[in-house]
Design a protein around this nucleic acid. Structure first.
Lengths: 332, 332
DNA sequence: ACAAAACTTGCAATCGGTTGCAAGGGTACC
DNA sequence: GGTACCCTTGCAACCGATTGCAAGTTTTGT
């Protein structure tokens, strides 16, 4: 049914090798043969079967893209960037939606069955061991948004979450907040714990502070909202570091339900700087994470791994910065 | 490097056929052989190469998922549902991000190179001819969220956008709005035009109405916001049907910037009923589109196409209903 | 004009599986 | 015990491509 190498060869009156060679870069074909083949291919509407050729070349150009953050709008941006960056380089994203799974075994098996050239684990919640499982199974892997480390076991691209926690704490202190709280993502998320750690490091030396913390069920609007509602039933802090913009936006929503003004009654600083945070109705003060660079860099790294599979694991950590908007009071 | 059929066969002391057969459902293998093979496979960590087998079976279980709506948060929900629904059936989503392209040629070629079993065009903006191009190239295709038709050229699953336009108009009329407007998506989107048509059909017989319409640049927050800002500079209508929730939310944002209260000063009804529309701070009255059923049904249809490729094109149109929240005044 | 060097081309093996076919082995039945 | 039938197994061809090798052709240099 579909047209193959052989058909083109027959029509062009050349061998199959000749056809193959005109379609592979840098192979030795005369101009005459090439044009005969191209004409025949054109006529038949031939395009080479990438999977068949992967059998001999060992390259599929398929890249597994594994994630579990399908309820955080930031992830649409992430998806957009990743799929485009991969496409631009002639790579094809094969998606794995991890929603209810936390074990790598199934994903690893599946991606190996499809002979992906590499895998990208795009998640700030999964532990390094998750990405490591791909590495151990012989699948080159980059963990994007993964836990930063000075000597990582696999390639990691992202930010230093501990430092972001410190940064958020410093920002609250610089604005004179005395009852400060961390409202983090789920306890089993590495990013939630790292941000927590940084936050605590920074505040624990100040004896005049009242410090609290809690964790939402997941990185979602609903979870942030629910957690802040719960806090408001007791005695809330006056300045919060919410571990993520979508949590922040959920928290903001529960503030206004209770007639509280963000930035005035209660301060909130988020993390990510997603598109929505810029909306006038949200106007969230937050820590900017350079998503686009992180993703471009991740895909660069994937390409380099393909060239040199023995490449030594590397951590690429990008700096973040505070974006001042309307949900914290002014600096003192 | 990777372990193959041959290795397992050697270790188990059987032929390659025997190994192949133990891994294919319904093949004839004795219990004894099977267990020998399974033991050997276990020991070597073997799992069959899906791409190699696709060569002979003609099935890859890869499904192309093509879309262009990477700036509308609804699409994260769509993505989540699609990837899960496909996975549950053992199918693998191969993503095509169409962002700047409107011609199917490249996507078609690429998906044929990867021998996808079928393609899903998930877009309410692309014309039927786009999906048709896949069909014509021999790739079974379902157009999800596509233009409904009584005799479609390819499988279509979605809603009747014309009827939704009517429904929105009726809703505005039932609430006594007299200066009604349609604020649609981009003019080149089929859904924007269909909703426009339905809206107009319904209002044109009422001589006491003042009717206006305009189109945003795309389905995004920014576009909706910009368009409403522009409208507010002139004499806006008092009741709008915004062609999509994200447009509505953009429009709402520009209303509150101008000190206008949605539902009181200006009414807005959206379409989609995405998660965000339920947020208390948004509380958008909108037309609910049954995304989940649409997607499940699309994937069902994909499976049935795989079973019977000659299956006659079918349109599966799902009913929508108005969800009353806070952005329209009460019914008279 | 001739030899050497460089380039083209087709053959055939190979990638990792699947499958039709025929042979072999076992069981059931009379 | 002999025949008929069914199940299991391996052989070998094939899926659609790539590639090392050797033979054939062209180009280059003198």
């Amino acid at each position: 049914m579909s047209v193959t190498l052989k058909d083109v060869a027959a029509l062009a009156g050349v061998s199959r090798s000749a056809v193959s060679r005109t379609f592979t870069e840098g192979a030795s074909v005369s101009a005459k043969t090439r044009s005969k083949v191209e004409k025949a291919a054109q006529e038949l509407g031939y395009s080479p079967n990438a999977l068949a050729s992967s059998l001999t070349t060992g390259r599929t150009k398929l890249i597994g893209l594994i994630s579990n953050n399908f309820h955080n709008p930031i992830f649409l941006e992430v998806f957009d960037q990743f799929t485009r960056a991969l496409q631009e380089r002639g790579l094809r994203p094969l998606i794995v939606n991890l929603t209810d799974e936390t074990e790598p075994a199934n994903s690893v098996r599946m991606l190996r069955q499809y002979s992906v050239d590499a895998a990208i684990v795009a998640s700030s919640t999964l532990p390094p061991s998750f990405a490591k499982a791909f590495h151990d199974a012989g699948v080159p892997v980059v963990h994007t948004f993964g836990r930063s480390a000075t000597s990582p076991e696999v390639h990691v691209v992202g930010i230093d979450n501990v430092e972001c926690g410190r940064m958020a704490a410093r920002e609250l202190l610089a604005r004179g907040y005395k009852r400060v709280g961390y409202l983090g993502g789920p306890k089993n998320a590495t990013s939630a714990m790292d941000r927590y750690r940084g936050f605590m490091e920074e505040v624990e030396n100040h004896s005049d502070l009242e410090v609290s913390h809690s964790f939402a069920d997941n990185y979602s609007f609903e979870a942030g909202r629910a957690e802040m509602l719960r806090l408001l039933k007791g005695t809330p802090a006056d300045g919060y570091f919410c571990g993520d913009d979508i949590l922040s936006i959920g928290a903001l929503s529960s503030l206004s339900d209770n007639g509280l003004k963000p930035g005035k009654d209660i301060g909130i600083i988020g993390l990510n700087d997603m598109e929505m945070s810029r909306w006038e109705s949200v106007n969230l003060t937050t820590i900017h994470q350079p998503i686009k660079q992180i993703i471009t860099s991740s895909v660069d790294l994937v390409e380099e791994m393909l060239k040199d599979p023995t490449r030594y694991p590397e951590a690429r950590i990008f700096p973040c910065r505070v974006i001042e908007r309307g949900t914290l009071r002014p600096r003192l």
